[in-house]
Computed example of a mutant assay.
Amino acid sequence: MLAASPFRLARASAFAAVCLGLGVVAHLFAGGTVTAASAAGGLALAFGIALPATGRERGARTILPLLGGGQAALHLLFATTCPAVHHADPAHPHAGLLSDVAMLVMHGWAVTLTSLWLARGEALLWALLRRLGTRLSLVLVLETHPTAAPPSIPFPDEPGLPRPSALRHVPHRRGPPRPRPALSL
């Protein structure tokens, strides 16, 4: 299913906002600073990364590398445009190789979880649009041909009618209870 231009712009904007928000929060959490100009540049960068990919439905295999590349580009942008905080104390958590590895691990987790979240939202959005398109086409057919019988359109996402079946674990005894012999004392 191909997307129209306003829909593509809305999806690219949502991706750019999520990508920028993740990058800014991660950069601030690591002790950096973000200026308004670098945030605006980061939003334009993330929008530019996302717009070519919004032509059709995308899954996690496409969203994960896009979001990872966007995070790497935003990291470089924020590192070059914002003043770095230098720590003279080597025991400080933001100094040395350990902090770099920790930063990569945290970025990796955040990118993975966020891309799975975006992929799930993307799948739900396209399923909703397909369902609305099917319903709208049914309404249009009935409006243009009111005497025609409604076409049989399968709805694969909807559950079918329940099948009548007997319960397997229920005893099938009907009628009044059987009399029990009286106990004599």
Score class of each variant (00 low, 15 high):
residue 138 L to G: 14
residue 44 A to I: 09
residue 104 L to E: 03
residue 50 A to H: 09
residue 46 A to W: 03
residue 42 G to L: 08
residue 27 H to I: 02
residue 140 L to F: 05
residue 8 R to M: 06
residue 159 P to W: 05
residue 158 E to M: 02
residue 125 L to S: 15
residue 70 G to L: 04
residue 38 S to Q: 07
residue 43 L to V: 04
residue 98 L to F: 12
residue 62 T to L: 10
residue 185 L to V: 10
residue 79 A to M: 04
residue 33 T to S: 14
residue 97 L to H: 10
residue 120 R to I: 01
residue 73 A to N: 07
residue 12 A to W: 01
residue 130 R to K: 12
residue 144 T to F: 13
residue 6 P to Q: 00
residue 22 L to F: 04
residue 101 V to E: 07
residue 185 L to T: 10
residue 44 A to T: 12
residue 43 L to D: 00
residue 93 P to G: 08
residue 66 L to E: 14
residue 174 R to N: 05
residue 100 D to H: 15
residue 38 S to T: 05
residue 48 G to Y: 07
residue 109 W to P: 04
residue 94 H to W: 11
residue 145 H to L: 03
residue 86 H to E: 13
residue 120 R to W: 13
residue 39 A to S: 11
residue 112 T to M: 07
residue 72 A to C: 10
residue 7 F to N: 00
residue 98 L to D: 14
residue 62 T to N: 05
residue 114 T to I: 01
residue 49 I to E: 10
residue 117 W to D: 11
residue 7 F to W: 11
residue 170 V to Q: 11
residue 51 L to M: 10
residue 108 G to M: 04
residue 53 A to G: 09
residue 109 W to Q: 06
residue 184 S to I: 07
residue 99 S to H: 15
residue 124 L to S: 15
residue 97 L to D: 06
residue 94 H to V: 06
residue 90 P to A: 01
residue 184 S to A: 10
residue 23 G to A: 06
residue 23 G to Q: 01
residue 165 S to R: 11
residue 83 P to K: 03
residue 171 P to W: 04
residue 79 A to H: 10
residue 78 F to W: 01
residue 85 V to Q: 15
residue 1 M to C: 08
residue 131 R to P: 00
residue 69 G to Q: 08
residue 21 G to P: 02
residue 53 A to E: 12
residue 7 F to R: 01
residue 30 A to C: 06
residue 61 R to S: 09
